[in-house]
């Protein structure tokens, strides 16, 4: 439901990083998304072109990597996969677990293109 505002936040981060790297274009964006993040991959994919239109990320390929739900049991220590609404230990069945993976909403990786060459700077070290 709030995927468009997430896309606007994503665009802000992507634009800032692209500027820092003097890139004129963003080629690829990799997100890592867990089922417990509260955001849905298909909705993000739909909202993204609207958010990115006219920006330097307009043509970027948006890749969304699904993170599995993994819990670590505070009783037996096992790390097991779980369903988003049943975060029980897969080994001993205890409910006292910690989420290790599954709530990510991360901008993981960017590929920038058309990088402007930096204006050559004078070497800081003195010439021999």
């Amino acid at each position: 439901m709030h995927e468009y505002s997430l896309c606007i936040a994503l665009l802000g981060q992507v634009e800032r990083i692209a500027r820092d790297h003097r890139a004129r274009r963003v080629a690829r964006i990799l997100l890592r998304l867990g089922p417990l993040s509260g955001a849905e991959a298909p909705l993000l994919r739909h909202a993204w072109p609207l958010a990115a239109a006219g920006s330097l990320a307009a043509g970027a390929e948006l890749v969304i990597e699904a993170a599995p739900v993994v819990v670590r049991c505070t009783r037996c220590g096992a790390e097991t996969e779980a369903a988003p609404n049943r975060l029980l230990c897969g080994a001993c069945g205890d409910w006292r677990t910690r989420l290790v993976s599954g709530d990510e909403l991360l901008l993981a990786h960017l590929e920038l293109a058309d990088i402007e060459p930096e204006v050559p700077r004078a070497c800081a070290s003195p010439s021999p």
């Binding site: 981060q13 991360l106 920038l112 293109a113």
Partner: peptide
């Protein structure tokens, strides 16, 4: 990467702002 692309690892939460 190829074609003069630059890869950047970010690992930042979308809601960081």
């Amino acid at each position: 990467t190829g074609e003069g692309r630059e890869a950047v690892t970010v690992l930042r939460n979308l809601l960081s702002e």
